[in-house]
Design a protein around this nucleic acid. Structure first.
Lengths: 343, 343
DNA sequence: TCGTGCCATGAACGCGCTCTCACGGCCCTA
DNA sequence: TAGGGCCGTGAGAGCGCGTTCATGGCACGA
């Protein structure tokens, strides 16, 4: 008795490919072929293997597969930023859902890696030695050097959101420009003429592109595009920006805000200054997050489908890993205007 | 030339342990010992190996390590729920940060796995065959069978939030009971006497425990504990619950809400019904999420340190993996009241 | 001086799988 | 009837490590 507990240098349990082969009456090679869905296996053998697998509850050892096959069977989801701020973002959550949805069924693991800039080197050598077959990258800053560096070490990468730096890394993004444009067109159609914007940060493409859309919209309507205030993705910065705008142009009658979360601060200031929304100032947000529908008043906003974004990124990455060609280098996903009470 | 591109059956690049050994002038065994921080290595050898490693940018192949060492060097973070709703939750984000913080430095990967109930079986066989050394579990429902089933297959598990089912699975949770109690004590100290609660769902310990704390607080003050309305973690359900409470008891002068996100809906209804906060009705939330500080009025709330929760879970799991004993089966983390304008 | 430990090291086996290679059976064509 | 493909299959090498096991050097006490 004591001997058992003593010795017990436990190797993980569960059947090996060998036993599956024996039960199915074939060789390891054939089992391997079935598992990897290769051709040149008779239907009879295939069935026998499948029943043996379900019978034994066999699950191939990933480590061995990786070692023998020289691929990791995993992709990394890298979140590059200072403090994990992205994580709480509904944007990230939706994306994650999309990524996961696209991954289920395939035998591919998701490695979650957070990386501060000072840790980039470690991350790179780690990934360079083949621990993941590809990477999805979510970065807080558009000019993050990480995407390029990952590409340099030969790792297939797809970035969430258009990167700003030089070079061309495949990315998937919402069509922020058109989203901004549509928002302004809507405001114009409402008869507004003093249309401001609270833009996103200038070091992110999402901020810049939505701003460009706003500019274009005003250009189309022959309205001045002079009322710009910048914010980051916090209500506080939105409040500051709106205060500034009201001081500069008390006659402002509409504002396109680059994110719902920023719009929260904007609404607060508007309310505090006695401006009615939408009667005095119409507000259009961006994202269509949960915040939009629960804001007072409920926010008219530009909807982006972040889950679809995650799916698309994953699809693009897996396509590259499968060696498909004719893959689009990058993709823009459509946005749509969701009308609620604020504009 | 053509031959090169033809053949090129690429095995991942990077140095092998062999080359490190050669450069350091020792054997593979010694390099392995240094990497795994084992005793019985001379300082001279240790230094030589370390310099060789940094020089070559060597990173050991995880697959090979797992295969030879029969452990995965990875832990799974399992999110068990219907639709990925947890992901967007700041709770989850904070926890993730904590987990990651506790993991950095150690050579342990984080496998992110989402699982719907119907996928539990696959997940279990996958994990049963040794793909992770342990698991952290975040579950939407307290009576999820997954924790027990993971334990049955012999995988060390730590659950986020007290599970409700039978059996004893190690968990880490905030002290929800005391949090609720403190909230009520605060309301009582404000002179409130008709103190209601919008509770969380009854199938989660967080909901039940906060409710118990509320009950205890009212008992202490010899006040009736009759005003309970249930909500799930959405503003809409909070609005419904508050409406119900106001109909039942128009004289209600305080309400303890089991989550900030629910409180959003509560505040909306209060506002709509012409009740001033906190003058007519004081409101205390729970979580101290971003929502609390940006609500109107800013929410007095019970703060729970979710990042610490993530760290603690990871610490507990790694301790078990390291074979430490004397580990506490479960842990409760303190909460604290954050006073703002709403109460 | 010779043993008896303890420390430091290297050789070699094997983890569980994929992949290459070789082989044999079948159908088709000459 | 003989030859050439193509399909289906199995044997076996080896992926890059961890981990015994054996060995040798050195300090100590006898």
């Amino acid at each position: 008795m004591d001997v058992m507990t003593e010795i017990d240098r436990q190797r993980r349990p569960g059947p090996r490919i060998e036993e599956v082969a024996r039960l199915a009456g074939v060789s390891k090679s054939t089992v391997s072929r079935v598992i990897n869905d290769e051709p040149y296996v008779s239907a009879r053998a295939r069935d026998a293997v499948h029943t043996a697998i379900t019978h034994l509850k066999y699950s191939p050892n990933q480590a061995a597969r990786s070692l023998a096959g020289s691929k990791a069977n995993a992709i990394a989801l890298i979140v590059s930023e200072q403090s994990g701020r992205v994580l709480g973002d509904p944007f990230f959550a939706g994306m994650l859902r999309g990524v996961h949805a696209e991954l289920t069924g395939r035998q591919i693991q998701l490695l979650l890696m957070l990386s501060q800039p000072e840790g980039h080197d470690d991350l790179l050598t780690y990934l360079a030695s083949g621990h993941a077959d590809g990477a999805l990258l979510v970065s807080l800053h558009g000019d993050d050097p990480l995407p390029h560096r990952l590409q340099e070490i030969g790792l297939p990468v797809v970035v969430a959101g258009r990167p700003l730096g030089a070079g061309s890394v495949p990315f998937v993004d919402s069509d922020n420009f058109t989203g901004g444009l549509d928002a302004v067109r809507h405001l114009v159609s409402l008869g507004r003429t003093r249309i401001a914007t609270v833009s996103g940060p200038r070091d992110m493409a999402a901020g810049l592109d939505r701003l460009s859309g706003w500019r274009r919209g005003l250009g189309e309507a022959r309205l001045p595009a002079d009322l710009v205030a910048e914010a980051d993705f916090t209500p506080e910065s939105g409040a500051r920006a709106m205060t500034e705008l009201l001081d500069r142009a008390p006659d402002v009658d509409a504002v396109f805000v680059a994110a719902d979360i920023i719009a929260l601060g904007v609404l607060q200031v508007l309310h505090a200054r006695g401006k009615r929304v939408p009667e005095d100032v119409a507000v259009v947000g961006f994202d269509d997050s949960l915040l939009a529908s629960t804001a007072t008043p409920p926010l008219t906003t530009v909807r982006q489908d972040v889950e679809q974004l995650g799916r698309t990124m994953t699809w693009r990455l897996l396509g590259e890993l499968a060696g498909e060609d004719g893959l689009p280098p990058s993709l823009l996903l459509p946005t749509s205007l969701v009308r609620r009470a604020s504009a």
